[in-house]
Design a protein around this nucleic acid. Sequence first.
DNA 1: CCTGCAATAAACACCC
DNA 2: CGGGTGTTTATTGCAG
Length: 838
Amino acid sequence: MDTDRSSVGISPAEHSVPLEASKRDADATGTIVPEEDLKLEHIPDNLEHADFSKLLELDEKNDDDLFHGIDILDQQMKSDQGKEDIELRVEEPKREMKEDESSNVRNEDKQKLEAPESPKSMPAIHNDEKSVKQVYPLVKHEENTPAAIIQERLAHNLQRHNSLTPMMFPLKQLNELKSDMQNLKLKTEDGAKNSPQSDQNTSQKNAESPENGQQVTQLHPQLLQAADVNTPTSNTVPGASDEQSKISAYARLDFQDFTFYVQTLQVIIGRRSENDYSHKVDVNLGPSKSISRRHAQIFYNFGTGRFELSIMGKNGAFVDDNFVERGSTVPLKNKTKIQIGQIPFQFVLPDHEGNISKELASKSKNSTANASQPPKKKNKKEKEVKEVKEKKAPKPPKPPKKVYTLQEIPPEYRTKPTCSYSNLITSCLRKFSTEKGMSLSEIYSGIRELFPYYKYCPDGWQSSVRHNLSLNKSFCKVSKEGKGWLWGLDEEYIAERERQKKKQAEAQAAKAKVAELKQQQQQEQRLKKQQQQSSNSKQPNMAQTLAANRSDKKTTSMDDNQRTMKYLQEQLMILTKDRKGLDKSLMAQILTQALAMTINQVTQAAKQKGISGNPLTALIDKNPQHLNLILAAAVNAATAKVTKGKVNQLVNMPPPTVKDQQPSAKKEIPIKRAVTPKPPTPSVVNPVHANSSNKDQSFDPTSLSKFFQPKQQQGSRPSSGMAKTPTPPVTVGTPKSGVVSNGSSVPATSPQATSTVVPKKRPASDTESSDSDDSNSSDSDEQNKNGDSSGESSGDSSSSSDSDGDSGSESETDGSDSDSNSDDSDNNGHDNDDGQSD
DNA sequence: CCTGCAATAAACACCC
DNA sequence: CGGGTGTTTATTGCAG
Ligand SMILES: [Mg+2]
């Protein structure tokens, strides 16, 4: 009964919801977020479509009832086609409800749903049944045998058509396979005796449903393929008595004495005695009491794309010789051995071609190659959650987690949200976190709140969330609480990353621009040539003339650009005369990037300064040396990038060509000494400036060059990173605004200074400000301290390199190997110390 | 074909 | 001992 602790703090919403996993433990931590924060609105109340409403109803019922959902589903589908579902009635005249172990009491509800209307089409059905039997004479069963019952079932299965179907196999040679079956010997031999007739022989096949047509398809397009193939006419009676080739099914259950074809997405396996019509059983395993009425269910899990087996029977079952307790659900692979009570059987999937795989695991259970999934869904986007459900086994140990059945999940929550985990976590923290952060379980709940999909799907996502928290630098531990940490966002890092992204985008744009210019240039040249030729030859013909004119026009307009480009290219060539062993393609990349960077930076700088016109041209005219410096810096930066740091200084900073400036000033730039975020204040002083006229002021070499530095550097990030303050506990709460504007120079502005923070120890002089926050400061401070002192800080700090790493591609190499080790160890190990201070 | 990235799964180490 | 947490790694599939 305990509800998941996570839910505790977080959403009231959870209550109303079916209730999810029940984990329990209310540990102290529980408290946390103000409940109000989370609200739920997932409950679908807007379903107007009849189908939906049915689903809803289902939702409200409890587990047991759910199992019957199948009918509903089927029915719905059928109804679409206007078919019959009569058979149901036929077979189960009236179920008196009662007995079923747990609670079938509510079955009736469902029944209403399923068997609403009229029986008019009945007749046909009957025929079908007969035909079926006829068709497959091979089977001979006496009335009460399971086989007989099954057959009965099949008969109506015939009519149902499966809508969402995984792939089916045409069972042409089913029979052949059976032989293999024999191989299976489960430990049940005796069982057979016990339940004498239970497993008699009978082979049955279910005919298949007719049109699985298109509507169904939408959901699982592929599923159908196979079906389509065979389905043709088949459906109801495979009229052809001679060949059973028409049968199609998603899978097959091979019993020692008979075969059951799984032609619906869910099949209930259990016990049913002759007169007992109280419950529906697709596969009757006979009267043995060791088998529950609804002992197991085989269903197709759309989420995992495979069939799964849920054990509901009290005595559990054996799957591939391993005991599976009640309440558990296990995936079924091709040829999975299953034993319920004393009855062993094997689950067999069709092979890809749609044929039954025949090789079978005759001998050893070797590795069954193909995974179990028969139908795979093709578009991943539409992934659907799935589920199965189950209940908790009282005595056996654990209350597994509840698994939901497709029908149980509100339609709107069946598909996985597209956003990435990092976005998921970020928005969760932004929305629910307090300055202290959120605990893992709170994050889980927050995410479920944000996207109810996660309430219904299997827990793998939590692993992903943890993985993200650890790995992604955007998330940091803010403070410690009991078991784990409270997580928060590292706004600084995020801002930084964003900046970087932007920059990259710009660079790309610039590159594109360069490419464009180049093309134009080429074109122009071509035209020129043509012109020349033509003129030489004789008189230009019309076309040529026109072309020429046109080109002229363009030319003039782009004259500037061309000239500039040409100039830049020339300069670049000069600068890079010494290629230091780099090959052509690399050089090409470097030059292109350098060009792009230069253009980009100059343009931007000009924009900032409000300079209009073509800044490059202006620069060329007014201060070529300066331009060269920029080019040189760009080349170096591009080189570092392209070579991943192998080569850092392709060009000597004091540019060869035009040098004569102040190498000193610019020199510092390229390296990554990070640390001081210093604005380019240095007096700079330099000839250049001097030389240049005032106008140039707009371009400050230093500042520009800065842009070209490999990466890390910039602003705050580095400093913080290095400093190690593992990012001041940022708080998540306030962040909204986010981003810091400025970029380059000082980190200072912390995004939202608001909370916490306080860089703490860190000798570094610089780290920016310490913001003070009154309110939280105290707490945060302390926490910070802890954090710092604790290993973590050390880890990070040590990893200053790593900080670099991520940002810059170049560092990759180094960062990865050596660093990681040391860092890691640090991190992990240390955590403890601090720990409990709180 | 290679690289980078996000999603997944899991193995492990720790802590309660 | 067992579950919740954090870290890491390996794998996979997609995208550029
Ligand atoms: Mg992290």
